[in-house]
């Protein structure tokens, strides 16, 4: 477990060891004493209980010793933590957007990626940004976590020490697909990273369809891909005009995807459930997406058909 995947592992794990060590010592010690008392002073053996009801000296001792120990623990925790707030100047900057329910990592040259690709042994600073609700970026192997709060400029940083793939999880509850809001941190060599970073086509902002903007703003893409991959819901690619089997109150029915069907799916998704997908996952967007915006979505979906 303690593989030392980042520069913080040692400090954090030292604090773990110290606190757990002291804790286990006291837990076992006190429990043992308690059990010994139960036997040694059981009513069978001891019919003359003492009448001693206190001792100032003992009270002072068992106030002072725990006080010293907890101060020690506090100190170790603080020492392990303080560097997490001091970002080195040469850290590579990555802007992280956490939104319902996906992570997007954006590099300084404009490249975006669903996974965090980073070069070995180089400090990275993650600037955390959320357009919707609270999330929390958590990379257990690196011992880092910081909440992603709308309106706040939170950040975290670390230096990865080993090449490999590590889990990125969302630790702050953020609604329906919270547990699926995961990504990978991929630590690669500097050379590999440079090649990867250079390889992309910048998105031309002005060409974005108004319907796509609405789809992005409402995070439909967390469940519906635009490129044919199957996520929680079906892909929007080639959706328009497709023939599908849907379940209406458990009865199968064949439909063709048209304007009316798409709108119904947006406003009342559980009325007609596409075969092979689960009901109850997509919320109704009644009151969230206006009729006008729904039309734009329909227009955009038309453009996704070859």
């Amino acid at each position: 477990m303690y593989s030392g995947a980042s520069n913080f592992v040692e400090g954090v794990d030292k604090a773990f060891m110290l606190i757990m060590g002291i804790s286990i010592f006291f837990l076992i010690g006190i429990t043992t004493v308690m059990i010994i008392f139960l036997f040694k002073y059981s009513r069978k053996k001891n019919k003359k209980p003492s009448t001693n009801d206190g001792s100032i000296k003992l009270e002072i001792i068992w106030t002072a010793i725990p006080l010293v120990l907890v101060m020690l623990m506090f100190y170790y925790g603080w020492v392990g933590y303080a560097p997490m707030r001091k970002v080195p100047d040469d850290a590579m900057l990555v802007k992280v957007t956490g939104k319902m329910w996906q992570w997007i990592f954006e590099y300084e040259n404009g490249k975006t990626s669903p996974d965090l690709v980073i070069p070995l042994n180089k400090p990275v600073r993650l600037d955390l940004y959320s357009p919707d609700v609270n999330h929390s970026l958590f990379i257990p192997a690196f011992r880092v976590k910081e909440d992603v709060v709308p309106g706040y400029d939170n950040y975290l940083w670390f230096t990865p020490y080993y090449i490999g793939d590590y889990e990125i999880l969302c630790a702050e509850y953020c609604g329906l697909m919270h547990s699926y809001m995961t990504a990978k941190a991929k630590v690669v060599s500097q050379e590999e990273f440079d090649v990867w970073l250079a390889d992309f086509t910048p998105i031309e902002k002005e060409s974005e369809h108004p319907g796509l903007l609405i789809i992005n703003a409402n995070a439909c893409t967390a469940c519906h891909s635009l490129d044919g991959t199957r996520l929680v819901g079906s892909s929007f690619k080639d959706l328009w005009g497709a023939k599908k089997i849907v379940l209406v109150k458990d009865n199968e029915k064949e439909i063709t995807v048209d304007e009316q069907y798409i709108k119904k799916s947006i406003y009342d998704p559980d009325a007609e459930v596409v075969q092979g997908f689960n009901k109850g996952l997509m919320r109704s967007y009644t009151g969230v997406i206006s009729e006008e915006d729904a039309n734009k979505i329909v227009e955009y979906l038309k453009t996704l058909k070859k």
Binding site: V12, I19, I30, T31, M73, G77, S136, K145
Partner: peptide, 21 residues
């Protein structure tokens, strides 16, 4: 005691980062 002692793990800054939430 187990609850309280693990509370110390949560109260310490360095370890809190790992086990919070």
């Amino acid at each position: 005691m187990i609850g309280g002692l693990t509370g110390l793990v949560l109260g310490s800054l360095a370890t809190n980062v790992q086990v919070h939430d």
